[in-house]
Design a protein around this nucleic acid. Structure first.
Lengths: 245, 245
DNA sequence: GCCGGCTATGCCGCCGTTCGATATGGGCCG
DNA sequence: CGGCCCATATCGAACGGCGGCATAGCCGGC
């Protein structure tokens, strides 16, 4: 992680020094995976690297959507609110995930840092111009959006039809699989978000989340380790528990 | 509606006769809206028109995803199943909606006709070739996917955090707004799907759906009319009820 | 007119919520 | 280094909204 010490930092080395994208650890996962060296250079020209602390709100629902982001380190959460304060977290973003697609010029959700995060930041206009110029990039972005759509449908099944226990098991499995895709070990799985965040992601309360973790621990399905890590004792069993079969 | 009388019909008039897309009533809503006359002609070359009766399963979750569709008339439902039969309907498709995006060569959900439907049918390979050739079409498809993503996030908020009453009110509002976008009157709203389908879309049971409709009727928010139509007495009130404010 | 599927509704039970109290643990300061 | 403090997590008890089941009513099709 670069040694930044401010909330927002303009990465002047992007233009002057070596191409930062060339050394990007998550490039293969992102929209940038589709690009050649020359295209990467063009992308780097319009990019800023920024860093935020946990709890920082990147943007709020309804804000003007003039910026796109790519997560390069840390975890973010996206959420929507009801007037009385009820909250639904619609997704957690991990390194390599894209952020900032919008429909009508405004963001449809809020985005907040869960852990310290670093992001690549693209002005929307210039990004769109690049997309027109590089159809490969457009196609890659479309493919990522399709993947998110499929994940959203999985999440609908979870929210609408799964029990508390199935939801927690599905959640742990998802974190494990996403960690694996990023080249980390699948077990034990790192769970950086709070019980409240997990509850608002799964359509539960913090109490139910706590109780269910305790229940899974008591029945020897998982173990809670130091540093927000969860050891999964039997991955196949967890998979079955996640689908009620 | 063309006078088809079979389950699957190859529309031979597409190539031989007048360009059918030119007269398409929902073209402005679909991916085809982005196309010029010449591009439309190319699209028409690879297209078949098909028609299905209610209950017909277009494809199932896990099937090989070698075909894309565009709904031109009627209503379809998309759903996912759990091993024990629990079902979550992830969306209802109306004329103009696109269908068949997939991640790993297989459909991630099943698709079934709710009412009699007519669809445009595109072989996946040839469609992808056209997308490469016409970036405007690719961009349009991406924009439609972004819209669906936003709708999916709304649905997550509904499933995870709204009460039964709020869910039903949100559902009626959505149908009303979608009807309006298609040039129909927003009120009364046509509700072609069964209580069971509504329940599986909103994460409820049929009984709760029935009870909630009765409750809304008793409190004079709506009235149930002939022909599966619902009269909304006060649209603003319904909007407030849908968000719990 | 009869039959079958869908819808409506009363009754009861349960899962998850709500509320309150207690435990834990990490950060900060003395 | 130890102790305090506040946020978070955990746990117990009571409540309530929604689900499950059974029955009755409705409507459409043949």
């Amino acid at each position: 992680m670069p040694p930044f010490d401010m909330g927002r930092v303009r990465d002047v080395s992007a233009q002057a020094d070596v191409n930062p994208c060339g050394a990007c650890p998550v490039r293969s996962l992102t929209v940038c995976a589709a690009l050649e060296a020359e295209e990467l250079r063009r992308l780097a020209e319009i990019l800023q690297t920024v860093r935020f602390e946990p709890g920082h709100t990147l943007f709020g629902e309804g804000d003007k959507a003039d910026t796109l982001y790519n997560v390069t380190a840390g975890t973010m959460k996206l959420y929507k609110l009801l007037p009385d304060g009820r909250r639904q977290i619609t997704g957690f973003l991990l390194p390599g995930d894209f952020l900032g697609l919008s429909v009508n010029e405004t963001y449809a959700y809020s985005a907040e840092a869960v852990t310290p995060v670093t992001l690549c930041r693209f002005p929307r206009r210039r990004m769109e111009a690049l997309l027109d110029e590089f159809p490969k990039m457009q196609r890659r972005l479309f493919s990522m959006a399709s993947n998110e759509l499929a994940a959203a449908q999985d999440q609908m099944l979870l929210l609408g039809r799964k029990t508390a226990k199935e939801k927690i098991c599905s959640f742990l499995l998802m974190l494990s699989q996403r960690a694996q895709r990023r080249g980390h070990k699948e077990n034990p799985v790192h769970v950086p978000m709070s019980r409240a965040d997990i509850a608002d992601y799964l359509g539960l309360t913090t109490e139910t989340v706590s109780r269910t973790f305790t229940q899974l621990k008591t029945s020897r399905v998982i173990a809670l380790l130091e540093g927000n890590k969860v050891q999964i004792h039997d991955m196949d069993q967890l998979y079955d528990l996640a689908e009620g079969s």
